[in-house]
Amino acid sequence: MSHIFQVSYRQKDLRYAGAGMERDVYHIASSPGLLAKVVKPGKGEADLACFREFRAYRNAGWPVAPIPKLYGTQVTEFGKAQIVDAILSPDGELGPTLYEVAESGALTERHLMDLNAFVDAVYRLRLTAFRFAPQNVVFGTRFSDRRSGFFIVDGFGDRQRFSRKELFARKRSRYLDDAMRRIEMRIGLPWDPMARTFSNVK
């Protein structure tokens, strides 16, 4: 038996914003503070991918965790999508990634303070994702609660969900240590593994 789903968002309702590894991202015309993350064709069964991402968001612990809020799943003309917060810059556009901030040479002490607050939350909540990378960490204001800072917006949910179980705490800490060292190499910002902070000191 075939299932017919009502399409909530048609092509005219969506404006392309970019792409992650597993999803294409669209602005929603009627809701400027929200994004539709559509599972790419050929990236696995859409229902399963959406369920895994829903589980990842649920386990992460919004709003304490530095992630967007997940509002649910909708059907678009492009496929099934998760509806999530946009992380916005002051002009209302999507905020820059950590990689873009570092590459532009515009990284300020405010950025550094917020980056270290992000890192502290990641370790404190023992969040893990299959790909912590500076391209997946965005600076701006989270639409749902107007909280500002850095947020991880991609690279989790499909292959390795967020988890806070104590059994693997040590393993996750080692994973995060490695992830921060990779970020250090990508953006050139010194990482202190003992203090678990980034600094501007070369």
Rank of each mutant, 00 (worst) to 15 (best):
A36V: 00
T73D: 02
L115K: 08
K69C: 08
L34W: 15
R52H: 15
E77K: 12
G105C: 14
I87P: 02
K40Q: 08
G92D: 08
L88Q: 01
A117G: 12
P90K: 09
I87A: 08
L94E: 11
V101N: 02
E53M: 12
D114C: 07
P90I: 01
N59W: 07
Y71E: 06
H111F: 02
S31G: 01
A81S: 10
W62Y: 15
A117H: 06
G44L: 07
D47G: 08
V101G: 09
A106S: 11
A86G: 07
T108A: 07
I87K: 06
P63Q: 02
I87R: 03
I83W: 01
R110L: 14
S31E: 15
V38F: 13
G61M: 12
D114T: 07
T108R: 10
P96T: 02
Y99T: 00
A81G: 03
K37N: 06
E77W: 10
L115V: 09
T108F: 04
L107H: 08
W62A: 09
E109H: 15
W62H: 12
L107W: 09
L112A: 11
L115M: 09
G105N: 04
A56D: 11
F51L: 15
K80Q: 09
S30C: 12
L70M: 13
P66H: 04
S30K: 12
A117V: 04
S89T: 04
A106P: 08
E100W: 13
G92R: 09
G33R: 04
I67W: 01
Q82Y: 06
Y99C: 07
T97I: 04
R55I: 01
G33I: 00
P41R: 12
P68H: 00
N59Y: 11
E53W: 04
L70V: 00
K37Q: 10
E93K: 13
E103S: 11
E77C: 13
K69H: 14
V75F: 11
L88A: 06
E93G: 14
A65W: 04
D85N: 00
D85I: 03
P66Y: 05
